[in-house]
């Protein structure tokens, strides 16, 4: 029986050896393979394609046009808006998508002597929209699910623009020096709004209305308070507000605030921000603590 015990002892050691050797060699000799997953709404370099669309004065747009109404939508993906120092540019769009997804649907109509309407509709992809400096724009930019990045600088000229994330996503807007807009409405169902106001001056008074059902907003304001008076009127239904900006004074509770920069009344231009949050929170501070994904500035 002793020999049987010894043999069993050897079997024990053999099992340990087999286990050790198997652990060492199995990743090389017996790799697991799963089928490659490729999602049509995820764009890779290999299967991406870019649709281009542009409207330029006196090439495919008449010279009498002064006001352009935008109706831009992306069902799933990203929308970036930028203004360029280009006097003849009405609108330029590039839509990066998966080759298997449908192309950007476009239409352009000149409704009256000075008015034109641009309609761009993309299903899944990344739409980069560039607008010129010599036209006044209004309309709607709509993303169902995804993100939107808007930069308003010295070339911007907006009368009233609605930015909407219909279901969920993120909205990042930067107001830079000499930006010109009358009213921006930002609506977001679920997600977050990052608003950065980094300007010495504005061309005119502006209003920003922000509404978030579930999520919140983070606002950073870095302005010359003598030239730009910023007022924030905000409410949160369930959640809290944080005012962490030394230039703002006024009344603030956990769920409601009415604050404005010092010298608001005497400032050259005014920026009034109205923000309503359902469930979530809002913060205002001097520098933006958060970054929009994929964006460094």
């Amino acid at each position: 029986m002793t020999s049987a015990r010894t043999i069993l002892g050897w079997v024990f050691v053999a099992i340990l050896l087999i286990g050790g050797v198997y652990a060492a060699v199995s990743p090389i000799l017996q790799p697991i393979r799963f089928p490659k997953i490729s999602l049509p709404w995820i764009i890779t370099e290999a299967d991406s394609i870019i649709d281009h669309y542009s409207l330029v004065r006196e090439i495919n747009s008449s010279s009498s046009i002064k006001h352009v109404t935008l109706n831009v939508s992306v069902m799933f993906g990203a929308l970036n808006l930028l203004f360029l120092d280009s006097p003849s540019l009405v609108c330029e769009a590039s839509f990066r998508r998966n080759i298997s997804m449908s192309a950007l649907n476009t239409s352009y109509t000149e409704t009256s002597g000075e008015h034109a309407a641009v309609r761009l509709h993309g299903k899944v992809g990344e739409l980069n929209l560039t607008l010129g400096k010599n036209y006044q724009y209004d309309g709607v930019l709509d993303v169902r699910i995804g993100g939107m990045v808007v930069e308003l600088g010295e070339n911007s000229n907006i009368s009233r623009l609605m930015l909407s994330i219909r279901y969920f996503g993120g909205l990042f807007m930067t107001v830079k020096n000499e930006a010109s807009f009358e009213q921006i409405d930002m609506n977001l169902n679920i997600g977050g709004i990052l608003l950065t106001v980094d300007a010495e001056s504005l061309k005119k008074d502006g209003i920003i209305n922000a509404g978030v059902n579930i999520g919140g907003y983070s606002m950073s304001v870095d302005v010359d308070t003598e030239k730009i008076g910023v007022r924030l009127n905000s409410t949160v239904d369930i959640g809290s507000l944080t005012i962490a900006h030394s230039s703002f004074t006024g009344s603030a509770t956990k769920t409601q605030c009415y604050v404005e920069t010092t010298d608001y009344t005497h400032a050259t231009n005014h920026l009034n921000i109205n923000a309503v949050v359902g469930l979530g929170g809002g913060t205002i501070q001097e520098t933006q603590p958060y970054q929009f994904l994929g964006r460094n500035s």
Partner: peptide, 11 residues
């Protein structure tokens, strides 16, 4: 040692 290991299992 091996005998003891086997012994634990058998007896």
């Amino acid at each position: 040692v091996f005998t003891r290991i086997g012994g634990v299992l058998l007896a």
